[in-house]
């Protein structure tokens, strides 16, 4: 109950907007990192990971 009163009187109407901004900035940082040129090579290698495991299955039947 006291917590409820505390929160009610804390003037949190801007609360959600602040959270929105925080999330937005976190997101901008991630995008900036992803697109930094130094990561290009690494990401290209990672992109091929699903295709790497093919050697692991010697029997390669096809859908045809």
């Amino acid at each position: 109950m006291s917590l409820t009163e505390l929160m009610s009187n804390a003037g949190l109407s801007r609360y959600a907007e602040v959270a929105l901004l925080l999330f937005f900035f976190a997101f901008v940082i991630i995008v900036w990192r992803v697109f930094s040129p130094s990561r290009k090579q690494l990401l290209e290698r990672q992109a091929r990971l699903p295709l790497d495991d093919d050697h692991a299955s010697p029997s390669r039947p096809s859908a045809e």
């Binding site: 999330f23 997101f27 991630i30 995008v31 990401l43 992109a47 091929r48 699903p50 295709l51």
Partner: peptide, 29 residues
């Protein structure tokens, strides 16, 4: 999709960077 689509198409995803951004946007939003 990000696993089986490249498998079926026999090539890597169009933009891996975009897929990372895709991920984080979804988690955040």
């Amino acid at each position: 999709m990000y696993y089986f689509m490249p498998k079926a198409a026999e090539g890597p995803v169009f933009s891996y960077r975009l897929s990372i951004v895709h991920f984080w946007t979804l988690v955040f939003m």
